[in-house]
Each structure stands twice: as structure tokens, then as C-alpha cells.
């Protein structure tokens, strides 16, 4: 029983890390709070859904397509929404980014509802519902796949950030954009790419969501809040700690479910979140 709870906590926690990593990257690099992050997750989910339903592409195999499409959407969003934010004084950008992405939620969520109706959608692949026995614990096959995907994506992201020139300039810009621009790094291009990657990561998380749960046009807020909780657990803008933070949230939520019942799963996370905001605003894992 305990082992089962821990196993679910770990699975969901790793999945939460995938949901949140894009938001964390964007905040770390641009210091913008994108509260439309959850809406991008939902859009990514829809793309996978349609690729599966219309073209019969397996959701796991659709992830590369989702990444590319969402990357392009991210570039467009940067150009239309984030780039004009630079008109504001630095102190006002964060607050305004929040307001603007809030407007973006209104636009995206309702656009999604308009395009694809407000029905709840989910993918039932041939292997959905299959369960693997792991050390006597039952693990759904899709969850295992999602964990694999998460490791792969976070691994590739890590390699990209540490091994490529663009990755290095993203990291440098995140630390100190003024110093980075003095070193000759094109800040605008770095922001553009970081925004693209952030949205692409949200999209990949969407695929996981549609596989493990379901999506509907207005469910973005739920995923945004989860990303936000993970973000604050990890410490704002810390990318490496996201993984631990996701695990912590997953385990704590499962503990909450065990003690209070499934209806209060999200409440546990949200209340813990506010407590941590107040008591440890620098994050759980920050030194």
C-alpha cells in the first residue's frame, strides 16, 4: 500500500516536472511570468490528440511533431506578445508579463474551445490501460512511457543548454543579461529561442497530459497552477531543481490523497504552495 502510494507519487511527480520545466526556463531567462503556460500545455495535448485521431500517429511518436509545431507557436507568441513588453521599464515587466499572458489565456482558451468544442478529449492507445508489475507494484504502461519521455526531454534540454552555443548564451542571459549582451550575445535572439523552447516543452507536457488524463479547453489553469507550485518549490527560475520540486509535489499530493481523500488532491498542493511562498519564498531546495 505504502509502496503503491510512493510509486504513484514518484510517477506523478516526474510528470509534474515535465509540465513545469518550460515555465521555469522562461522565467529563468526572461524574468517573465507566463500564466498562459497551462494553455500551451492544453494546445500541445490537442495537437497530439488530432495527430492520433486523424493520422493515427502514436502519441509518443507525435512528440517530435508537437515540439516543432509548439516551438513555432512560441516564436510567434514571442514576437506578438513578449517582445513588445520590452517597452516597459525593467521593474514593470514582470507584473505586465503576468497581465498580458493573462489576456493570452482568454484568447487561447476560447480559441481552443471555438476550434475544437469544449468536450473533454483523451487518447486511448492500444496500450492504454495495460499495467506492468514492477517489484510487486502495479504501474500503468503509459505512465512509464511518460517518465521515459520526461527523462529524455530533460536530458536533451540539459545537453542543449550545456553543450551548444545557443544553450550557453541562454544560460548566460539567464544569469545576467547585461553582462551577456556585453559579451556579444544577441539577447533578442536568445529570448526568442528560449520562448520557443519553453512553449515547445509545454506542448510535450500536453502530450503526457492527454495520455495520462484528459484535456478540455479550460483546463489550462489547472496545469498552470501545478507548474507554478513546482516553480515556487524549486525556487523561481531554477531549472535544475524543478525535478526535485516536481517529485516533492507528487509525493505530498499522494500523501494528501491518502489522508484526506482524492477530492482534496489539488487543495493539498495549493495550500502547501501558499505556505511555502510565505515561509520560504526562495524555494524548498535553494541553498
Amino acid at each position: 500500500m505504502i509502496a503503491q502510494i510512493i510509486m504513484y507519487g514518484v510517477i506523478i511527480g516526474i510528470f509534474y516536472a515535465l509540465v513545469a520545466v518550460g515555465l521555469s526556463l522562461l522565467f529563468g531567462v526572461m524574468k517573465y511570468m507566463n500564466i498562459a503556460h497551462g494553455s500551451f500545455v492544453v494546445i500541445g495535448g490537442y495537437i497530439s490528440f488530432w495527430l492520433f485521431n486523424l493520422l493515427g500517429i502514436d502519441p509518443f511518436l507525435s512528440i517530435p511533431f508537437v515540439l516543432v509545431i509548439m516551438f513555432v507557436i512560441g516564436l510567434i507568441v514571442y514576437g506578438l506578445v513578449f517582445s513588445p513588453l520590452k517597452r516597459f521599464a525593467e521593474g514593470q515587466r514582470l507584473g505586465n508579463s503576468m497581465l498580458i499572458t493573462f489576456g493570452l489565456i482568454l484568447v487561447l482558451d476560447n480559441l481552443v474551445a471555438f476550434l475544437w468544442t469544449s468536450d473533454v478529449k483523451t487518447i486511448t492507445a492500444p496500450y492504454s490501460g495495460q499495467v506492468i508489475q514492477l517489484l510487486g507494484i502495479r504501474v500503468p504502461f503509459t505512465s512509464l512511457g511518460v517518465i521515459g519521455v520526461t527523462f529524455a526531454i530533460i536530458g536533451i534540454l540539459h545537453l542543449f543548454l550545456s553543450r551548444t552555443y545557443i544553450g550557453q548564451s541562454i544560460k548566460a542571459t539567464a544569469q545576467d543579461w547585461e553582462a551577456a549582451s556585453l559579451l556579444g550575445i544577441n539577447i533578442n535572439r536568445t529570448y526568442l529561442i528560449a520562448c520557443g523552447i519553453s512553449v515547445a516543452l509545454a506542448g510535450a507536457a500536453g502530450t503526457a497530459v492527454v495520455l495520462m488524463y484528459s484535456i478540455s479547453p479550460y483546463s489550462g489553469l489547472e496545469w498552470m497552477l501545478i507548474s507554478m507550485i513546482v516553480l515556487v518549490f524549486a525556487g523561481l527560475g531554477k531549472i535544475r531543481e524543478v525535478f526535485l520540486a516536481g517529485l516533492a509535489l507528487g509525493l505530498l499530493e499522494q500523501l494528501g490523497v491518502f489522508l484526506l481523500g482524492g477530492h482534496y488532491r489539488a487543495v493539498v498542493g495549493l495550500v502547501l504552495f501558499v505556505l511555502i511562498l510565505i515561509l520560504r519564498p526562495q524555494g524548498l531546495f535553494a541553498k
Binding site: 497552477l225 495549493l270 504552495f273
Partner: peptide, 13 residues
């Protein structure tokens, strides 16, 4: 921003 997301989280809870 902390105030904003904190109030949102409590309202959702």
C-alpha cells in the same frame, strides 16, 4: 508576483 499567484492559489483551493 508572489502576491498574485498566492491569491490565485488560495482562491482555487
Amino acid at each position: 508576483v508572489y502576491f498574485s499567484i498566492g491569491t490565485l492559489a488560495l482562491a482555487e483551493a
